[in-house]
Design a protein around this nucleic acid. Structure first.
Lengths: 231, 231
DNA sequence: TCGCGTCAACTTGCATACTAGTATGCCATC
DNA sequence: GATGGCATACTAGTATGCAAGTTGACGCGA
């Protein structure tokens, strides 16, 4: 009680109830199952998941901090509208940080790192079918995470995961067209090629082009779903 | 912008009990009043502030999410050690984002913006006395926030406020030497000069030099207080 | 003296009861 | 019929009691 907290236990091994409710709600908001503006209530959610209000409250608070919910005291809790300003800021922050980390990755990559990236690309190509969308998404993320790891800055990707949240809400509004997967994988290939060639300038440029592709898609989806948004 | 220099939470108009406990604990941890490794308990804190465990719990959870506390179920809650890795990552993220925003600021600054920066510098010079440390600190933050605003990316500073948290804990471990304030203001002056001259390259270089000064001080404090840290 | 088992005193996680404030719909009144 | 006021049914904020788990000290036995 008085001295060091024994060991470096991860911060987040709380009870399974809280975790379950949090994950379920986060997925529901992210996937659009619960739509922006819709009201939810601690009592109803607690009843639905068969738990008490306490873990639900903590999940609500956390989701509110992440920008997914908006808690209005004595009134209710609502799914936050997607804020276009936040989307733009997310894009700016992501581009700034990932262009820098991919430069570092290109400078520091060793043979094993390039091999790992190549493996990820192969796996990515294997799940390009439309019915494996979730796997494709996960491998997309994994590739970016691996680049951050190679750069020696894995925490940067951890931060980006949080920052990207509003971006991902937009993504889920619409699945992408037929050639989308191939385009993404092709751009990833370009990035990996430049990293493998120890070419920081080229790697940064490839990353920037890749992100601009992603951002353009986000903007297009935003335009066609403006009712979910808030300036 | 006249709001508290900390806490970038968007919509957070919760009850005063939670807010009060949260602010008090955050200040206590940041200032080192409660030291890393020290154990606190919901019950004791609740009794001390005359509230029930519920608002204390929520404050604890929030502080744990920010990296200030470490909650170990069924064991206790402890002030998290300052993680050197997190400090390094904070520095990397801060340098990357602020160098980019200051470039933008230099490209976009108008006369009124330069005037605002100059006013901040004047105020800053007025509080260089050692007994006005808190005001000096606040104006330091305000200057960086203003640069982000001029760049059109105020949200970037909001993010940095959260990211910087671990850095600020280090800062509070030790007040700085006599010439410190003058050095900081001088470096701010250089940045503002380059922004006023619409010189993005010069502004970025001045910002980089400034941050390196700050980071070197952090590293030095870290070395002389290693018992509070964790690799 | 050292080792081990037991237990008491703590901790947080969860459930539930109560408080206070707000939105809403019904009803009486004009 | 339109309108204003009030009762009611919600909401989140808070307090508190109970459960499950860990820690560490104490005492017993070898």
């Amino acid at each position: 009680m008085t001295d060091t907290p024994t060991s470096a236990a991860p911060t987040d091994i709380r009870g399974p109830r809280l975790h379950g409710v949090y994950e379920a709600l986060r997925a529901a908001v992210l996937s659009g199952e619960i739509r922006p503006g819709e009201g939810i209530s601690e009592t109803r959610v607690a009843a639905r998941y068969g738990v008490s209000r306490t873990p639900v409250r903590e999940a609500f608070r956390r989701l509110a901090d992440e920008g997914f919910l908006r808690i209005v005291p004595q009134v209710g809790t609502f799914v936050a509208p997607i804020q276009l300003g936040a989307v733009s800021d997310s894009q700016f922050i992501r581009e700034t940080l990932e262009c820098r980390t991919v430069r570092l990755a290109a400078e520091r990559a060793e043979a094993a790192d390039v091999a790992a990236l190549t493996r990820l690309l192969d796996s990515h190509r294997a799940v390009m079918a439309p019915d494996r969308h979730a796997e494709f998404f996960a491998l997309d993320e994994a590739t970016h995470a691996e680049l951050a790891r190679i750069a020696g800055r894995p925490a940067v990707w951890d931060l980006l995961v949080a920052v990207k949240a509003q971006l991902d809400r937009v993504r889920f509004l619409s699945l992408h067209s037929e050639g989308w997967a191939a385009k993404i994988v092709g751009e990833h290939q370009s990035i990996v090629d430049r990293v493998a060639a120890r070419d920081p300038d080229g790697a940064e440029e490839a990353m920037r082009a890749h992100l601009r592709t992603v951002f353009a898609a986000v903007d297009e989806i935003a335009r066609t779903n403006s009712h979910f948004f808030e300036t």
